[in-house]
């Protein structure tokens, strides 16, 4: 049942992979938080990474974004090796990262937060158009554009954080626990938005503790346990897997 992860041995799969992670290990000075993780995202896919709190999900995303200088292994984005690149050059390649805990710029307005998302593309002519697209996705942000992001609700801050990442015109969006700590109705809205973003052609790597939610929007998923990929497969097969159901779906 577990689907084979993308491997560079099959050129066709590699060509259609927007993200390829092979044998990735990472540590923060102590024992490895990730050990030999291999996974991939194909162009146009939404892929979920499930796992408990300390499974290494956030570390995986941080390593992709270059925030963990000591990560070892291989990460390729559209065939380009990422490890060793300075973190601030990664968004320019087409990777948007919505970090865990939202990390909006609290003393900036919503509008300035969104504009910062286009920082790498400053001077680009289509910034107004991108902004328009973010406002279409999250009409609330248009209403609140003059409000300081730090004074907004958690759900609105999450929208700002996602909108900010979209302003960078990503081909791949990394989402770290977007539903964490939010009311169910807001979570539904956000997951609707993630689906819409994906349908616009943005590939998504979604990290979630809430496995049910994640599998409802993802095509495929990986289960991470203590830094290892222990299971992978389509969303249907994962939701049907007894182990996953017991550990992550609470049934």
């Amino acid at each position: 049942m577990p689907e084979t992860a993308l491997s560079s041995a099959t050129p066709d799969a590699a060509a259609s992979a927007v993200l390829e992670v092979r044998d990735l290990s990472a540590a923060y000075g102590g024992p490895d938080v990730l050990s030999a993780v291999t996974l991939g995202v194909r162009t146009g896919e939404t892929v979920a990474v499930l796992g408990a709190n300390t499974a290494g999900k956030t570390t995986l995303l941080r390593a992709i974004s270059g925030l963990i200088p000591k990560a070892r292994g291989h990460i390729a984005f559209e065939g380009l090796a990422l490890l060793g690149r300075p973190a601030h050059t990664i968004p320019g390649l087409g990777i948007g990262h919505v970090p865990e805990g939202r990390h909006v710029f609290p003393r900036m307005t919503t509008l300035d937060n969104l504009m910062m998302g286009a920082f790498f593309h400053r001077g680009a002519k289509d910034i107004a158009e991108r902004l328009e697209r973010v406002f279409t996705l999250f009409p609330r942000l248009q209403e609140r554009q003059a409000q300081l992001a730090g004074s907004m609700s958690g759900g609105e801050q999450q929208m700002v954080s996602i909108g900010r990442a979209l302003m960078g015109k990503p081909k791949l969006l990394l989402l770290d626990e977007p539903s964490h700590g939010l009311a169910p109705i807001v979570v539904d809205e956000l997951h609707g938005a993630i689906g819409a973003i994906n349908r616009q052609g943005v590939s998504v790597l979604l990290v979630e503790q809430n496995a049910m939610l994640a599998l409802s929007v993802a095509h495929r998923g990986y289960v991470l346990e203590a830094g290892h990929v222990v299971l992978s497969g389509s969303s249907q097969s994962l939701s049907a897997d007894p182990g996953v159901r017991r550990a992550y779906l609470g049934v």
């Binding site: 968004p91 710029f105 003393r107």
Partner: peptide
């Protein structure tokens, strides 16, 4: 704006492409 962004959240600034 980048200076203010780094002051408020250096990690988030990095994630939008600011060389901190």
């Amino acid at each position: 704006r980048a200076i203010r962004a780094v002051a408020q959240d250096a990690m988030a600034a990095t994630l939008v492409g600011v060389d901190t």
